[in-house]
């Protein structure tokens, strides 16, 4: 499939960047003319993936988060990668309410990503990091011109 547009960026795992990254992705996605709900879904899912890099992958350190965002036809693909601690058991980690972070985390980040996006893929290796790929089909609305 041909890529229509793409950007990549590397950001430090500081919590102030959570809002920065989801806003950048939402702004990029805006060229697909998404609905308000689609934009909100994308922002929420991206926020989950980025927060996981900050809270879990680089728990006691500051590391780099690698973001790649692609548009192809009406499909948005967002890749969020870290070189942090990795996930031992991905299936278990993706179960709703599963968390390794104690009382203030709900363990619902992956559940949000799954239900708000049209596709999620997680790859991880203990000690070397995690990649989350999120996909969303943006509805083509009647009467809106798209190049």
């Amino acid at each position: 499939m041909k890529t229509d547009n793409k950007f990549s960026m590397t950001v430090l795992s500081r919590s102030t960047n959570e809002s920065f990254i989801r806003s950048v992705v939402a702004t990029f996605a805006a060229q697909l003319d998404p609905t308000v709900e689609e934009i909100s879904d994308i922002k929420t899912a991206v926020s989950e993936a980025v927060t996981n890099c900050i809270v879990h992958a680089y728990k006691d350190s500051i590391g780099k988060i690698y973001i790649t965002c692609e548009i192809s036809n009406n499909l948005l693909t967002v890749k969020i990668r870290d070189k942090g601690v990795g996930i031992e058991n991905i299936t278990k980690a993706m179960e709703p309410l599963y968390t390794t972070a104690g009382d203030e985390r709900a363990g619902l980040g992956f559940a949000v990503m799954q239900s708000f996006m049209d596709g999620i893929k997680v790859r991880s290796k203990l000690g070397s990091g995690t990649t989350v790929v999120l996909r969303k089909n943006i509805s083509v609305r009647y009467g809106t011109a798209r190049e």
């Binding site: 809002s19 909100s40 922002k43 929420t44 926020s47 989950e48 927060t51 009382d103 203030e104 985390r105 709900a106 619902l108 980040g109 559940a111 949000v112």
Partner: peptide, 16 residues
Amino acid sequence: NFMDSSGIGLVMGRYK
């Protein structure tokens, strides 16, 4: 105007 699962954690934590 925006909330992710951290907001759920906030409500759950206060409930507890």
